[in-house]
């Protein structure tokens, strides 16, 4: 599903160049649930941004679902993001003047689906994350956990190949975190490939594979005995 080989990325900070990724090789198969761990500055967010086609690597090859991601125009990039990827952010990134339902329907709008179909699908995914009753509420009226669940529904709505989550539980208390992780696991069990960037060990332990990043290189890549969040609660 995802194939990264020899990915390099550096940022220009004033006069000096900061090498963030120094040759990343990573293969992720369909249906995997991978945690990318690392302390801040290890390059994990940069890696996720490259995976999410939000940022471009300086060097290296990135193949997503048999499509080479290289020198994309903004338009093409938008198209691929829309079709291949679902994003879950730490700060939810819901559009605050749109209702939960409208937020979920947004990627479908950019897919060009007719209105009726969008509403139908959005309702389906809201139900899936257990928020059918909150469809007409604005994000401001939802709790953190609910917001993240709306965001997950939104990420799922376009039926992407891969879900990319950037610290999805970073803004939540642990009980809510585990609820959200439970939901993510359920989605993974239905066959969706999921990548989670986190620095929380317990969250990483709930995934099936753990990639440890340090100073721009992968220092550890192992399968883990996935623990159900329920065990923590």
């Amino acid at each position: 599903m995802i194939s990264l080989s020899n990915i390099y990325k550096s940022y220009q900070t004033g006069q000096s160049t900061l090498q963030v990724l120094k040759g990343i090789d990573l293969e992720i198969a369909q249906g995997e649930m991978v945690a990318i761990m690392g302390s801040s500055g290890s390059g994990k967010s940069t890696l996720l941004n490259i995976l999410g086609i939000l940022d471009e690597a300086d060097q290296g090859k990135y193949v997503l679902d048999n499509t080479l991601i290289e020198n994309l125009s903004e338009r093409k990039a938008a198209l691929y993001r829309n079709r291949f990827l679902g994003f879950i952010f730490q700060s939810f990134n819901l559009i605050n003047y749109k209702t939960a339902l409208e937020n979920v329907a947004m990627p479908l709008y950019y897919q060009g689906l007719p209105r009726k179909e969008r509403i139908e699908k959005a309702n389906y995914y809201l139900e899936k994350v257990g928020l059918a009753d909150w469809a007409t509420h604005l994000p401001g009226e939802l709790s953190g956990g609910q917001k993240q669940r709306v965001a997950i529904a939104r990420a799922l709505a376009a039926d992407p190949k891969v879900l990319l989550a950037d610290e999805p539980t970073g803004a939540l208390d642990s009980a809510t975190s585990y609820e959200v992780m439970e939901l993510v696991r359920k989605i993974n069990e239905e066959g969706k490939t999921i990548l989670i960037v986190t620095h929380e060990n317990d969250i990483a332990q709930m995934c099936k594979r753990l990639v440890h990043l340090k100073d721009g290189v992968i220092i550890e890549d192992k399968l883990v005995q996935s623990q159900s969040p329920k065990e923590y609660v």
Binding site: E74, R75, A78, L79, R81, R83, F87, Y110
Partner: peptide
Amino acid sequence: TKELGIRRALGATPGE
């Protein structure tokens, strides 16, 4: 800025 960024992450093209 942020909202437009979200929209673009969700697949809005520059034209849109």
